[in-house]
Simulated scan of single mutants.
Amino acid sequence: MKQPARESQKKPAAKAKRKTRDEINTEARDRKRDKKHRGHASGSRANPVATSKKSGEGAKDKDPRIGSKKPIALGAAAAAAQPAKKAKPVKAAEEKKPRLSPEEELAKLENDERLDLLLDRLENGETLKAEDQAWLDQTLDRIDVLMEQLGIALDDDVEDEEAEEDMYRLLKGGK
């Protein structure tokens, strides 16, 4: 077998040239100069760079160091001088609705589909949920109030009077 040729017989590669002290110092100065120019420019906090806004509102740029300009009262007397905030009434949404006349409101309630459905379910002997029962009672009470305002008498009153007259006749022994 033949032995491979030695590599040492080839020409040796050129050694890396060793840098002199002056070259090392100049490279270090260059690196230091590059590091020095990183970050914000001097005085950038006091004089922030104006950024262009696309919204076009024309509002002045605010200084990021300055907070609210709202005056704050100091001391115990100032705390007592502040008026207490009033709670908004819960029924504010109802006041905004236009008020209906009693006739219009009664007609609207009588034509209500939910009311009809719940009354039909009651007539069929079904039990209603507490929420539905409460709404039904409230609606029927409102209908009674509106009918009293309008002077409309229920037919139930007439039937009751006739029944009383019939009972009176039976007790007297009449026909």
Rank of each mutant, 00 (worst) to 15 (best):
A50P: 04
V49E: 06
K85D: 11
K69V: 02
A87V: 15
K97P: 14
K96Q: 00
A59V: 12
K86R: 14
G43E: 04
D116F: 09
A73C: 09
E103L: 13
A79E: 10
P102V: 15
N111S: 13
A84M: 10
K53H: 03
T127C: 00
A107M: 10
K85E: 14
K91G: 09
A77N: 09
E113A: 00
R45I: 06
E94P: 00
G39K: 10
L117A: 05
I66Y: 05
K53W: 11
L106T: 06
A80V: 11
K91Q: 03
K69I: 05
K85G: 11
Q82K: 14
E126M: 12
Q138F: 02
K54W: 09
D137W: 02
A84D: 09
A76F: 14
D112R: 01
P71V: 08
N111E: 15
A50N: 01
D137S: 07
A73S: 13
E110S: 15
K69G: 10
K32E: 14
G67T: 11
I72W: 08
K108G: 04
E94M: 04
G56Y: 10
K108S: 08
P83R: 08
Q82D: 03
K91D: 10
A87Y: 13
R65S: 12
E110C: 10
S52M: 13
N111F: 07
A41Q: 06
K85C: 08
I66E: 09
H40N: 05
H37Q: 12
A59W: 14
A77P: 05
N47V: 10
L122N: 07
L109A: 04
A76I: 10
E95W: 15
A93N: 02
H37C: 06
K69C: 07
P64C: 01
L119I: 12
D34S: 05
H40M: 04
K36A: 13
A84P: 01
K97F: 10
G67M: 08
H40R: 01
L122Q: 14
W135M: 02
S68K: 00
A134N: 08
A93Y: 02
N111G: 10
K35T: 10
K54P: 08
S52P: 10
D34F: 04
D63S: 12
